[in-house]
Amino acid sequence: MEIQIKNLAKTYGEKKVLDIESLNLEREKITGIIGPNGSGKSTLLNIIAGLDDKYDGQVLYNGELIDSDIRKKMTLVFQKAYLFKRTVYKNIAYPLEVRGVKEEKIKQKVLELLKILEIEDLKMKIGSKLSGGETQKVALARGLVFNPELLLLDEPTSNIDPEYIEHMEKAILKYNKENKGTVIIVTHNINQAKRLCDNIIKLERGRVIN
């Protein structure tokens, strides 16, 4: 697999922020991307997520260029997630709603995720009014609820309580094991990378360092 990157280059004006000759990210594995600030980690993640299509080179998903159908099979959880101004339940239900899943099935899946992330007590709270840690948990639940093939995480646990981090890491591992989900996580925390990842890629000034 599965994500093949070939001759990827991205520039902002004069500055080259990404320059990757060749990189393969494996299916059903957890890959960590680490590196200092400004090394191009988030940019790479955004390109894989299909949010940024202004680059040179190729990014293939199972051999195909990323289009809107492929985008539907993956999700990205941001460092500072945006939750909708509606209940946590409705927030987590959203990806299923846009896919036209039946109400009953939605309920079952949402309750399951609330349990996995230990946030059942937040169910009826308004998403936009939660604390930082709660927000990240809900955002992860919202990303996992539709069983994506690929889960992209952009520093999802920075600046939150260790207890919350533990819950989230447990959920990520469970998804990887039980649902055979592929995970790419950008983190600046080397210990977290060691705890979670099968492979670790190091970026520096837009290049891959071995």
Binding site: G50, L51, A81, R99
Partner: peptide, 16 residues
């Protein structure tokens, strides 16, 4: 923009 980004990552189409 921000909301649109979230919507796209969660699988919403243009209308949604």
């Amino acid at each position: 923009k921000e909301i649109q980004k979230v919507a796209i990552t969660l699988g919403a189409n243009k209308y949604q």
